[in-house]
Computed example of a mutant assay.
Amino acid sequence: MGFMTQTDTSAAPDSILSAGTPAPDFTLPATPDQTLTLSELRGNPVVLVFYPADWSSVCGDELAVFNQSLPLLSEYHAVLLGISVDSTWSHQAYRQSRKLEFDLLSDYHPKGEVSKLYGSYDEKSGSSKRSLFVIDGDGVISWSYLSPVAINPGVNGVLDALDELKKSAT
């Protein structure tokens, strides 16, 4: 783990989980009748994209960039998951309207429970903070980044972190 997060991981309320931390396991709805459990994805890297809300312009831009980057992410055998506090019904409509090719998980009830585990919940707005996590095949966070809510962080940091994971595995 020769690389650091780009996040202040002090005790400040803005801190998110940092590199070297075991990723908290969770099971969240991917559709109204299907769930996904993080630990079932072990063996491959997982990219978690926490975002504030479906239907917002910055979130739409951010998720579109990740959607366009799916071929690059697949080169690393990475699984991409979006997470927000919106309902599965909102996610379904949003995925269809934006033609997103990856799962959006609903952290709706109890509201923000998984976001809170990752330090990625904003109590004031009642939504997920805009944050990114790369989890290695063993379930350990290898990189994390907290972005200002109005800024699309893009995918470059994630790709760099996946590249570092690939180098350390060889």
Rank of each mutant, 00 (worst) to 15 (best):
51 Y>S: 06
164 E>N: 11
12 A>L: 11
72 L>W: 02
120 S>L: 06
28 L>S: 08
5 T>R: 00
87 S>F: 02
28 L>A: 04
136 D>I: 01
167 K>W: 08
113 E>K: 15
95 R>C: 14
77 H>Q: 12
20 G>N: 08
99 K>C: 09
67 N>W: 10
149 V>P: 10
142 S>C: 11
93 A>G: 13
103 D>M: 12
1 M>T: 14
141 I>R: 04
96 Q>T: 14
46 V>C: 02
22 P>C: 07
74 S>L: 06
71 P>C: 08
167 K>S: 10
89 W>R: 10
167 K>E: 11
85 V>K: 07
77 H>K: 15
106 S>P: 06
56 S>D: 05
49 V>K: 00
62 E>S: 14
21 T>K: 06
60 G>Q: 15
12 A>D: 13
159 L>P: 01
89 W>C: 06
109 H>E: 08
73 L>P: 04
168 S>Q: 14
65 V>R: 12
51 Y>T: 04
28 L>F: 03
124 K>D: 15
159 L>R: 05
153 P>N: 03
72 L>M: 09
115 S>I: 10
118 Y>E: 04
46 V>S: 04
26 F>C: 06
69 S>P: 03
128 S>D: 09
54 D>V: 08
126 G>L: 04
107 D>M: 00
4 M>K: 15
112 G>L: 01
17 L>R: 00
80 L>V: 08
140 V>T: 14
161 A>S: 11
42 R>T: 11
125 S>A: 14
92 Q>E: 11
112 G>E: 09
100 L>T: 05
34 Q>I: 02
147 S>M: 04
86 D>W: 00
33 D>R: 06
164 E>A: 13
3 F>Q: 08
147 S>T: 00
148 P>T: 02
41 L>F: 05
103 D>G: 03
44 N>Q: 15
12 A>K: 12
87 S>E: 02
145 Y>D: 14
57 S>A: 15
95 R>L: 08
78 A>W: 09
74 S>Q: 14
136 D>A: 03
13 P>I: 01
18 S>D: 10
68 Q>D: 15
146 L>D: 13
137 G>D: 12
146 L>Y: 13
30 A>H: 04
106 S>N: 05
29 P>M: 07
1 M>L: 13
51 Y>M: 10
65 V>D: 07
98 R>T: 08
4 M>H: 12
29 P>N: 08
5 T>H: 02
24 P>D: 10
156 N>R: 07
96 Q>H: 03
21 T>W: 09
14 D>Y: 08
152 N>A: 00
128 S>Y: 03
150 A>I: 09
52 P>H: 07
111 K>C: 03
117 L>W: 01
35 T>G: 09
114 V>L: 05
138 D>T: 08
110 P>N: 03
111 K>M: 01
114 V>T: 10
72 L>K: 07
121 Y>N: 09
67 N>H: 12
89 W>L: 11
62 E>Q: 15
67 N>G: 05
